[in-house]
Design a protein around this nucleic acid. Structure first.
Lengths: 348, 348
DNA sequence: TTGAAAGCGCTAACAC
DNA sequence: GTGTTAGCGCTTTCAA
């Protein structure tokens, strides 16, 4: 293993000079810099991560806590994680992967050991037990100060109380409103919303309820009728749900679906019943881009902007670690892409 | 932040004693141990990761390199990653997430900096450019030895040449054989294989070819006719592929599908053509459990054992890091689960 | 069974 | 613009 001291000797300079060439924290003559860089290259030097962390009390690692439960939005989570790792690298950070398994202890372990400089939590629940440990986590405490052992953190998703927290999420309320608007413009008056599984609403996962707020609010404003039904994924559940909806509101011509695993069953069932999409009924989905594009009918949809969420979360966290930027709630504006599944409402 | 020295003082012992209580590397009197443990608890002490890494030249971190390309098997990758993180924790390790983006440089960076003690690579290509850096990576070099800066590693998937490498994978050849056997037992004589996208075969990703070997070999042994066609996912591609297959081999009654995004389109198309599953044709899938269970017909399938792959990979790596176990290829035996998509071949 | 002390490789004052 | 040096918090010999 090559050490900084060896590089220094090889280049004929002192250790600190090499260190400063690396960090850019003081000016170096062009000549010296070149010699040092050449030595670094020739010797294949890589600074030792542990030593660096010890001396600087910065690990240059960001911890990412993902939920153990992998039943929802898995590809999206993966996309977010990858976007994070990529973005983190451009800021000089690596990403440590933690599962929710350890619960709040993981937060204590990571922050207590200085393993990571900050953390990003995905799939936060409305009243998450890890939140108290995170509130007010400002910029990191430097070496000698005994204050502020709290962990700088960014959440993906919104808990009930965002005070003292930085959060990044899609603006689900605006998303709901946008879907309703689109259908209203096309002349649809009776809209059915096929939601996530009941368990999701019971867990009070924020996004589902916020979407509903947006849907209902705009429907009221525009004078539309809106019926919301949670739905487990799969063909059987969707079949029952659809039958009930059409029974209760036979005039339904617009559907909003927020449930990946109900999308394809819905399309199949509509087809089976002789209802053509988009001639007879229109379908708008809130789902990952990939699902919308690969469905049997290319779906008009609002995509969950996974990459942007990952990127933004990292950038917010890095800003905090650099002492810039404070606690903020960053909502990403939804974008609706019109594809083949929505069209003018049929004449009554 | 609480340091080991503070714990020592609080417990009225020396620093080394605290260290040994933590590591268990020498015997401690019950009395002393208790006092130390109590102090650790009371002060909320967590050993500093950087200091520990520097002094011991072990980071207790495993690096996981995942491919950037997220077009294939994403939920499976996630499941593997989570299983790894969970298993790693039980052995005292954390997992660092690297994307393939940096290529071979990531290997150099991580091993050169001592960021991780070992690494696991997913989705290795047959002739991966990172492999030369990994071959023969035995147990880690200890602090002062200048030898062996190579990185202990485990691959998920098999490259062309496994010499000097430890690999974990599903036994895809046996998987192919198993699928053919199942269909043969049910009396099917004409079998069509719907494979991954052509690009997957062109990249020479090992698993696709090994599956094909198994399928063809057993078909030959059992005297069955086998037709293999790669297929892009989605309805349109599947439609074209299916038409060609039935054109070329109208007597086909058995299908083996190894392509997540072709599964549902295939079922829909068969239904549409009035071919009942499993009365007229049988379908066997090689896919994640979830896909098999959630499909519109519950699929007879061989599951990709994601969790076990993740767990085994970590255990192999930990064994290497402990100086136990050498280079091995660990193949997981496939298991076929019979569900509703396969049945006796129709009378001719 | 325990303590004292020498580093591990790097950063960041402080000095010139 | 560059060098000297004192730690960072821990592990591990060596000595008792």
């Amino acid at each position: 293993m090559v050490t900084l001291a060896e590089v220094a000797q090889h280049a004929g300079v002192s250790a600190s000079t090499v260190s400063y060439v690396l960090s850019g924290k003081r000016s170096i003559s062009a000549n010296t810099r070149q010699r040092v860089e050449r030595s670094i290259h020739e010797l294949g030097y890589h600074p030792n991560a542990g030593a660096r962390a010890l001396a600087s009390s910065r690990s240059n690692i960001i911890a990412l806590m993902i939920p153990l439960r992998t039943d929802m939005y898995v590809p999206v989570m993966m996309e977010i994680a990858i976007a994070m790792a990529t973005t983190a690298r451009t800021h000089g950070y690596d990403v440590l992967l933690l599962t929710g398994e350890e619960g709040p202890d993981a937060v204590r372990r990571v922050s207590g050991s200085g393993l990571a400089d900050g953390m990003i939590l995905m799939d936060v629940e409305l009243d998450d037990e890890r939140l108290p440990l995170l509130r007010g986590g400002g910029p990191p405490a430097r070496a000698k100060s005994r204050v502020g052992d709290d962990q700088p953190a960014v959440l993906i998703g919104l808990p009930a109380d965002t005070a003292g927290l930085t959060c990044v999420d899609l603006d689900f309320k605006a998303t709901g409103a946008l879907c309703v608007e689109h259908l209203a413009e096309l002349g649809h008056r009776d809209i059915a919303v096929i939601g996530e599984a009941p368990a999701v609403y019971e867990r009070h996962t924020g996004f589902a309820e916020r979407t509903l707020d947006g849907l209902r609010g705009r429907a009221r404003e525009l004078g539309l009728r809106l019926l919301h039904r949670p739905c487990e994924g799969g063909y059987d559940a969707m079949s029952v749900t659809l039958a009930r909806i059409l029974d209760e509101r036979p005039g339904t011509t617009g559907f909003v679906v927020q449930n990946e695993s109900a999308v394809e069953p819905l399309l199949a069932l509509l087809r089976q019943q002789g209802r053509a999409v988009p001639e007879d009924v229109s379908v708008v989905a809130i789902c990952p881009e990939q699902v919308a594009v690969q469905a049997s009918v290319r779906l008009t949809s609002v995509a969950v902007p996974a990459q942007e969420m990952g990127r933004l979360a990292v950038e917010q966290l890095v800003a905090k670690l650099d002492g810039r930027g404070g606690d903020e709630v960053v909502l990403i504006a939804p974008e609706l892409t019109v594809r083949a599944s929505s069209g003018p409402a049929p004449a009554p």
